[in-house]
Structure formats: C-alpha cells, structure tokens
Amino acid sequence: MNNKDLFSSFGEIDESLVERSERAASRSRSRRAIKMIAAAAAALLIIAGAAFGIAQAAGANYPGETPSAPKEIVLPPSQVGKKGYTSTKSRAYSLTSALANSKAACIITIGSWLSEDHETTSTYFEAKVDEVISGSVPEHIVLCQFGDSEWTLSGSPLFTYGDKLLVFLKDVNWGGMQYENCYAPVGVDHSFFYIAETPDGGRYAVNHNCTFTYLIEQNDEGADFEDLAGDKAILDAVIDAIGEHDAAAAEIIATNAVHSANSYAPLRIYRVEEIIDYIKGLE
C-alpha cells in the first residue's frame, strides 16, 4: 500500500463530506468577493489617472519597425514538424503562479529563427522585449521554445517571425545551445498570450489553446477581464492580425473559437491593458 493508493482512496470518501467542504469554501468566498469589489473599484480610479510609458528603443529589423539596415528574415524550417504534435504535456499556470515562477513578465516580438537542437528538442529565436510588465530582462533576448521542426507540443505550433507575445520568462536550465540572455516561456505551450494589434488601434490578448484563460478564471482572484471573443468583429480582426504573419496560430485560434460553444474552456479575448494592470497589481 503506497501514497498512490491513499490518493485514490480519497475518491471513496462520503459524498456528504465532499459537499460540506464545498459549501464552507463557497460561503467564505462570497464574503471575500464583497471586499474585493470595493478594492477593485478603488484601484480602477487610480489606474484611470495613470498613463503608460512604453519604452521604444531603436532596435534593428523587428516586425513593425523601420529597419535602418535590413537584414534577412529567417523563418523556422517548419512550424508544426513532420512528426506532428506529441501528446507530451507541460505544467499549466494561471497569471499568479506564472508570475511567481518567472523572472520577468513582458511583451516581446519574435524575430528571426536562430537554430534548433534536436537533442533537447528546443528551437531558438531572436526576440525583442517591447514592454517589461514585471521583473527585469534585457531589451534583446533569445527565446528558447520547447519543440523543433521534427515535433511540437500538442496544440501549439512553433513561434514565427512577427509573433507578438505576452510571456513569463524563466532561465533555460536544460542545456542545449548556448546563447547569451536566453530565456524560455513559463508553462511552455500553455501560459502565454498571442497579442493582436488590430487596424483600429486595439490591442488584444488571446491564449490559443484556452488553458491559460481557463486557469486564470479559476484561480486568479479579481481577474475579471472582459471577454471580447463573442464580438465577431473583434474575433475576426484578431484572427486576421495574427494570421498575417502566423497562419498556424491563427488556424488554431479560429478552430477553438468555433468549438467554444461546446467547450468548458472556451476561447477568450482580453484587452492587453487589463492583463498588464492585473500583473502589476500582483507584484
């Protein structure tokens, strides 16, 4: 008899006990929700008066910028891989736990593909940090993604040139290629947002496989972001904006949007600013 048996045996406990534990938790949550609403209202007043200063240092040859000396764009050899997706799973995070496990939260733009290492199944990209939300990180980094041109993690293509992401970065500690300022996303394929900048000036965040947004809703207290996925014009604009440079990611987002009605973890689209405010509030 071991710890696994003990874990299983908790499934045998009386239904009355299971129900009682839920009732007690929900009573306590209701009391706290009232306090949270009052605090959120106060915070909103402060935030409304604040202006954002976005550091836009002159970098070379990143999407959306005018390069002074253009260099060749390098795309990954394959975004999905000949062997297709694997069923390997990674740990999933909410905003709070992702921040707790990261060195920095920031918005980055993926640049050229640098290399891949089949031994550690890693792909490396140039990336420019557009905005640091929390922590500290250099302006130009190398992003290491788990997966390579042979296979990728379930549901997620490799990044590609022009992808704008809201990511939580951690050090790379599994060997592979040696690059200076090399970081990997916390939560591998789960815990980041694609950022879509739409022609009307909107900036939206979408988690392609819906796991991140589901866990945010479940676990991040006060993260009551307005979901805009139901607005067809916004949904289409987001898919178009991402699809302009990353057809694979756009396809997954579009597919999950169609299946949302039958899913317990439907596709969500949030305003980037709301997420940034929330992350800053966690510090």
Binding site: M1, N2, N3, K4, D5, L6, S8, S9, F10, G11, E12, I13
Partner: peptide
C-alpha cells in the same frame, strides 16, 4: 504512506477509503 511500497489491490484500496 511511502511511494516505494507495493500497490494495494482494489479491495484493499476500498478498505483504506473506508478508514480515511
């Protein structure tokens, strides 16, 4: 209960469940 110990049978697990 240590992880190294042998796995229990279904009946034993049920018995353990009753004890828990």
């Amino acid at each position: 209960l240590p992880s190294s110990a042998d796995t229990a049978g279904e009946a034993e697990t049920r018995e353990l469940g009753r004890a828990v």
